[in-house]
Write a protein that binds this DNA or RNA. Structure first.
Lengths: 236, 236
DNA sequence: GAATAATTTAACCAACTGGTTAAAACTCTG
DNA sequence: CAGAGTTTTAACCAGTTGGTTAAATTATTC
């Protein structure tokens, strides 16, 4: 009946419990998760959970903070590696989606529980986040000045990027039923999405050509912006 | 201590309870919600909840199905009113965000509970959804043939639209803390977003100019669109 | 094999869960 | 006022929750 431990981990019972707790918390959320279920998922007994982690709250906190840290450091690493806007965005999207493929419940879990438990947040993460924001803002500003992208609010763009990456996983069951997908079809959908999303974003960032979007809607206004700039820039 | 009923509704206690239950379920989810809290939120006692709705499950089901229906019918109405792609998208985004402004917890609630409770879904909703999909696909196909938009998978685009509209509300507490927003600042952020999102999408849908997105990224490949999309043959 | 640590079993606890019930109190309409 | 329906109060129920404990059992190490 109960799910046995997926792999016999050589890292001791702490990590076995932590991973089992992660799976259960991801599926059920903090309120819906039962200590007994976590124990069963780990292939252990309930007493041992309290032997290593004193309470459900402590166990949850360990899982939650680790998830948040992983997600943030994943993004931070990309910002370190890439210094070109287009490559950054493309890589950001690809890595993000690839990571979420392995942890489909993570976005719904983290975002769902974020608002409910303000006590489980760490300070340093917030600082790093603000650094990334600053870095992103400057990168966009430079690209804008070089005429490689159209003007856009960095915060809105960042939210757009995160939305396009994460939301499909949050809405996974809805998408599957509305689009008549099975598990395999959804996986293919996500696979296609890796290139689709970055193409979608980069296409939107193209500098405005002679024909603006407004003209497509209402052909009254004359074209505003001058001719497009040479878009390419030699690499560093 | 307890939150009194927000407005003395003239529609009787059923709707008072239902609205109170909605607020609590939206914040806490099914597992986290307590009947006592719903009663307090409604300014009533727990016995009356069971007097009108027999069980927690029935009460939840009433709230959940109503939310799903509202969300779907909102989208359906837009599809009825608009028959131009650009106007449809712009209106879709605006109406959607405007609705979610009044019900910020709705997306997280519906999407979070969707996967957990397959028993609360209605049949007719699924049928209507598929009709909208079909309609959207044809609309895009026509616009593509007229050269008004670049080629794009309708399913991916629809998911993009929904992601950009809904996800900011799901990630609201995260966005607020990472961007240092208070409630008012977030409201302004959403207000700006109404035009920002449709601009973002429509800008991405612009037909490809001589310079493709691929050229911006890697100048090696010849001009061929990065989004692998089989060239549609002309209409019958 | 003895000593030590890790793990299990099982009983147990107080608190809370959704849910029920019956009698009292209230409100409205006739 | 009388009476029907509504609402409240309060006690109560069985089941479950997170959590504890002590003893029994197993594995490990010296």
């Amino acid at each position: 009946m109960s799910v046995a431990k997926a792999r016999i981990e050589a890292e001791g019972p702490e990590s076995t419990i932590l991973e089992a707790a992660r799976r259960v918390f991801h599926r059920q959320g903090m309120a819906g998760a039962r200590m007994q279920e976590i124990a069963a998922e780990a292939g252990l007994n309930q007493a041992l959970l309290h032997y290593y982690f004193r309470s459900k709250d402590k166990l949850f906190s360990a899982v939650f903070q680790q998830d948040v840290r992983r997600l943030l450091q994943l993004q931070a690493r990309i910002f370190e590696e890439q210094d070109d806007v287009f490559e950054l965005i493309a890589r950001f999207v690809a890595v993000q989606i690839e990571f979420l493929q392995k942890h489909p419940y993570l976005p719904g879990f983290v975002l769902g529980e974020w608002g409910r438990c303000p006590e489980h947040h760490a300070e340093e993460e917030l600082e790093l986040r603000k650094e990334l924001n600053q870095q992103f803002r400057q990168l966009l500003k430079k690209a804008r000045q070089e005429g490689r992208i159209r003007p856009i609010d960095p915060v809105q763009l960042m939210v757009n990027m995160l939305s396009l990456c994460m939301h499909p996983f949050i809405a996974k069951p809805l998408i599957m039923s509305t689009q008549g997908m099975d598990e395999a079809a959804f996986e293919r959908f996500i696979e296609r999405r890796k290139s689709e999303v970055s193409a979608f974003i980069l296409s939107s960032l193209r500098p405005e050509s002679e024909i603006s979007v407004a003209d497509l809607k209402s052909p009254t206004k004359p074209a505003r912006s001058p001719a497009a700039f040479p878009p390419k820039k030699t690499k560093k």
